[in-house]
């Protein structure tokens, strides 16, 4: 049996992170400007937001957190549903599967590209809101943490769905939308959780967008449903659950 030392584990961890970053960089270079990604990650959340906010007498403080929330949801989960099926078709995905890295590193690398994309788009929304609407901010750290953790969570969700063995991005985008759309309505983005029926409120607690939205709302208004540490903790739990399920699905479907 080969011996495993602490230095060996460090070496292994470092190897995994380098590979994950290489995979993420590759996605940045190839997929960020793909039409499918721009439509799903930028235009879609914008139109969704306009559809539900236009005509309402709401202040920027009420509207901007919702826009940032759905932006992170859609943009973070838009990269992998496009990139992975395309790479299955071109068989470049086999190159990643056969690399000397674990599936965890592969899933992490794929998710990081969604994370970076989402953070960039959310930052644009944040800065634009600040510059144009002069949105007041109660606690910027809550907004930053909200964007970071929700982006990673939804990016991992996108990677999870991309495990489905198809070479057609449309198949995966359709499946992701089945989850993304209901999340918007049960997570307090447009409809406060308090006014949801009790069944809806129960479902809201199993939506990661609820906790992301709570953090971002808290950052702008100072009012929160949960403690920020609880929100961050829940998002981390969702990230880990999605990572484990994604890992399992990639292993199963690549056979």
């Amino acid at each position: 049996m080969p011996s495993i030392s602490l230095a060996g584990i460090e070496d292994r961890l470092s190897r995994e992170l380098v590979a994950a970053w290489a995979i993420a960089k590759k996605d940045v270079l190839i997929y960020y400007l793909r039409p499918g990604v721009i439509v799903g990650g930028v235009l879609f959340p914008l139109f969704m937001f306009l559809a539900f906010s236009a005509g309402k007498l709401a202040t920027p403080v009420q509207l901007v957190p919702g826009l940032i929330g759905i932006t992170t949801l859609f943009s973070a989960s838009s990269i992998e549903p496009v990139s992975v099926p395309i790479e299955r078709r071109t068989e470049t995905f086999d190159r990643l599967l056969a690399a000397p890295i674990s599936l965890n590193a592969l899933v992490l690398g794929e998710s990081i590209s969604g994370l970076v994309y989402s953070v960039l788009i959310a930052a644009v929304v944040f800065i634009a809101a600040l510059a144009v609407l002069m949105t007041p901010i109660a606690n910027i750290f809550l907004i930053v943490f909200g964007i970071l953790f929700s982006s990673m969570c939804f990016a991992t969700l996108g990677t999870l769905f991309a495990a489905y063995p198809t070479e057609n991005p449309g198949d995966i985008i359709s499946m992701v939308n089945v989850v993304r759309f209901p999340l918007i309505f049960i997570s307090g983005v447009f409809i406060p959780i308090a006014v949801l029926p009790s069944f809806g409120q129960m479902i809201a607690y199993i939506s990661p967008l609820t906790y992301a939205n709570d953090l971002i709302q808290g950052g702008y208004s100072g009012k929160m449903t949960f403690h920020p540490i609880f929100d961050v903790g829940m998002l981390i739990v969702f990230i880990l659950i999605f990572q484990v399920i994604a890992n399992y699905l990639y292993k199963r479907f690549n056979d």
Partner: peptide, 24 residues
């Protein structure tokens, strides 16, 4: 592999760098 599974949207050099980084 049997298919030339290179990233056509990257340059030849970028492909080589990616392959090397996967091996750290």
């Amino acid at each position: 592999s049997e298919t030339s599974n290179v990233y056509t949207d990257l340059t030849g050099w970028q492909n080589m760098m990616l392959a090397a980084q996967l091996y750290r």
